[in-house]
Design a protein around this nucleic acid. Structure first.
Length: 607
RNA sequence: GCCCCUGUGGCCUAGCGGUAUGGCGUUACCUUGGUAAGGUAAAGGUCGCGAGUUCAAUUCUCGCCAGGGGCUCCA
């Protein structure tokens, strides 16, 4: 329910005409005038139907509270459908208001304006701070009326100024009480972790299972669904992927930006994301302003582009960012690291002249292929994602000729590059066609790993321009693309594909050093320190356990190399090295081994 | 968000209308052992949370939270 209240010197209204056939009958004809009154413009909404009684109670309570504050005697209940776009059925609304009239008339003089009629009215608002108020509420929260009214007031800051002192104190008290009660319960929640997933095809483990088994990440109830916490090991993988992507992008002429993770809603309104995806955004209302966590990077980088006048000589401009994004995905969609509510996207926007599009597209594809080769991403396929000409849900920018043109352009490029692809209607972004790089997870489910998109709509919306040779302003083209994808999802892909046996350069623990007896520890420690200072990730297992046990555990951790140090090794200053093929080499030179691994890491060898 | 499944100490797991089984890990002691699990002992749980049914609920019912599978969605 939404209400708007006006403390008025007077209101004068007159029913003119039925707004629909079922309008209230037997109403007073002619003008009615009420003086010194609180006028309550009221819209009953669809969701209120679930619990009419509770909503009525709150409605009455709110009115009483306001009347008390402004010290009025008369109330006018005025049906006002225009406050909401999701109205309840008229009969329910009419009955609700009649009920409220009955309840309130015990204490005040109540006039109810006719329901379902077009009415003319004159009103004179007193203009003091509390003379205009609005409230929005539903029956969802079943709490005591005192607490409810405190809560509503808390949401509307200007009115808070007028709240009586004791009410404010009471609110503070209830807040404190809530904190005290919850803390104990919430602490328990903090330790609750739930992660479980059945095996996939051929008994393969999902990224969820591997994440838990290898201690890479987990999801905690207290933090929330779709918000995984990466441990030190998990973060190592993430960091290596991201460093690699950033370094490679820099080599290829990208500029890395660093833009805020949130903005005022106005920014998203320009791009159309607000209209298209508001439901999927985390919206923050702070005082009188509305912000939202960003679900994508585009508009931020466009703001940077627009900050200066650009010449045709400046193009192509390639803005990249390792971008933290937030999307309020449906709860049923969340899964491990594959689909989350906060993720990092290796995002970029190549802003270029139309004559550069072909070449830039090709360069992007080359970058993606390179990244995939180093990450060991194979068995992906290309999907040419087009719009759906028959879509009437407003899912796509309404400009069929631009769609046809840009899709034809993309198709030409794909064919020229000799790519094999599947065409998919209705899979485009709302602003343009995409080339998606698809993969299959352990359950055989298809998902997008990387994407390249041609955008014909946003340059127009943001009025992006450059000055061409002839001195006139021209419209650039934009390629949206991700190089290593969402790092979280790419990690999920790699984990599932390798079943945790990550390539050396991505492994959280590359080497595990095992000692055979305590007298080997000093030499082993020395070796470990050498490895660490060479930049290798190594752990020492100096426990007094059997060799068999230590080896088995190291294998289960999926380390790349198991180095054993016993009396023979100490004596000769060498190592016994076992790799993933389970073959052990003896008498390996320490420095040689270290430099070999360092080189492998540097070259990002996929074994 | 919808449908279905799941939720037992840090991890895996047995079980059942009468507060719980075993293993791994942990801690202590013994073992100094050469490549897939050495021995003994101890500590650790209000059986996801809340309500209902019952003399009695971890067990049955409902609601909520979380995870997963399938839809839908994916800027």
């Amino acid at each position: 329910m939404k209400i708007l209240t006006i403390h008025a010197d007077f209101i004068e209204f007159q029913a003119k005409k039925k707004a629909f056939p079922g309008a209230e009958e037997g109403i007073k004809e002619g003008k009615q005038r009420i003086e010194e009154c609180l006028v309550v413009f009221t819209a009953v909404e669809k969701r209120d139907e679930e619990n009419i009684k509770a909503v009525t109670d709150r409605y009455v309570q709110e009115i009483k509270n306001i009347i008390q504050q402004i010290n009025a005697q008369n109330v006018v209940l005025y049906p006002y459908a225009h406050l909401s776009s999701s109205l309840s059925n008229p009969k329910a609304a009419e009955n609700l208001m009649k009920d409220a009239e009955r309840i309130l008339s015990g204490k005040f003089k109540v006039v109810r304006a006719p329901f379902g009629w077009y009415k003319s009215f004159d009103i004179s608002c007193k203009g003091h701070p509390l003379s205009e108020l609005s409230r929005e509420f539903s029956a969802e929260e079943k709490e005591s009326p005192e607490k409810l009214s405190g809560k509503v007031k808390g949401e509307k800051s200007p009115e808070n100024l007028g709240t009586k002192k004791e009410e404010v104190e009471e609110k503070v008290k209830t807040d404190k009480k809530e904190e005290a009660v919850d803390t104990k319960e919430l602490l328990k929640k903090m330790s609750r972790v739930s992660m479980s997933a059945p095996p996939g095809k051929d008994g393969k483990k999902s990224n969820v299972e591997l994440g838990k088994e290898l201690d890479l990440y987990f999801v905690s109830e207290i933090v929330g669904g779709g918000l995984p916490l990466l441990t030190g090991k998990g973060t190592t993988i993430k960091r290596e992927i991201e460093r690699f992507a950033i370094d490679e992008e820099l080599k290829r002429g990208y500029l890395h930006t660093s833009t805020p993770i949130m903005a005022k809603s106005d920014l998203y309104k320009i791009s159309g994301h607000w209209q298209h995806y508001k439901e999927g955004m985390f919206v923050l209302k702070v005082r009188d302003e509305t912000f939202a966590l960003r679900p994508m990077t585009c508009p931020f980088q466009f703001v940077i582009y627009k900050h200066k006048q650009r010449s045709y000589r400046d193009l192509p401009l390639k803005y990249a960012e390792m971008s933290l994004l937030f999307r309020n995905e449906q709860s049923g969609e969340l899964r491990g690291l594959t689909r989350v509510r906060q993720f990092t996207l290796a995002d970029a926007h190549v802003i270029c002249r139309p004559d550069q599009l072909d070449e830039e597209f090709e360069k992007v594809l080359d970058l993606l292929k390179y990244v995939m080769s180093k990450l060991g991403i194979k068995d992906i396929w290309y999907r040419f994602s087009k719009y759906d000409p028959n879509d009437k849900g407003g899912k796509y920018i309404d400009n069929p000729s631009a769609w046809e043109e840009s899709q034809a352009m993309m198709k030409k490029m794909l064919d020229k590059l000799g790519l094999k692809y599947k065409e998919a209607e209705g899979e485009a972004a709302f602003y343009g066609p995409k080339l998606d790089l698809q993969y299959e997870d352990v359950y055989g489910k298809e998902d997008t790993l990387l994407t390249i998109q041609i955008d014909f709509a946003l340059p127009e919306k943001f009025d992006l321009t450059y000055v061409d040779k002839d001195g006139t302003e021209k419209r650039p083209m934009i390629i949206h693309r991700s190089s290593s994808g969402s790092t979280e999802r790419t990690m999920a892909y790699l984990l599932e594909k390798t079943q945790g046996k990550l390539p050396l350069w991505l492994s959280p623990v590359q080497i595990k050093v095992l000692t055979i007896n305590d007298s080997n520890i000093p030499f082993a420690t020395n070796v470990v320190e050498k490895m660490k200072s060479a930049g290798l990730r190594v752990e020492l297992d100096e426990r007094v356990e059997s060799m068999g046990k230590k080896v088995r555990e190291a294998q289960l951790e999926r380390v790349n190399y198991i180095v054993t140090i016993g009396d023979k090794e100490v004596e000769k200053s060498t190592l016994a090295v076992r790799d993933r093929s389970n073959q052990t080499k003896f008498d390996v030179e320490v420095d040689g081994f270290i430099s070999e691994l360092v080189q492998k890491v540097k070259d990002k060898i996929i074994e």
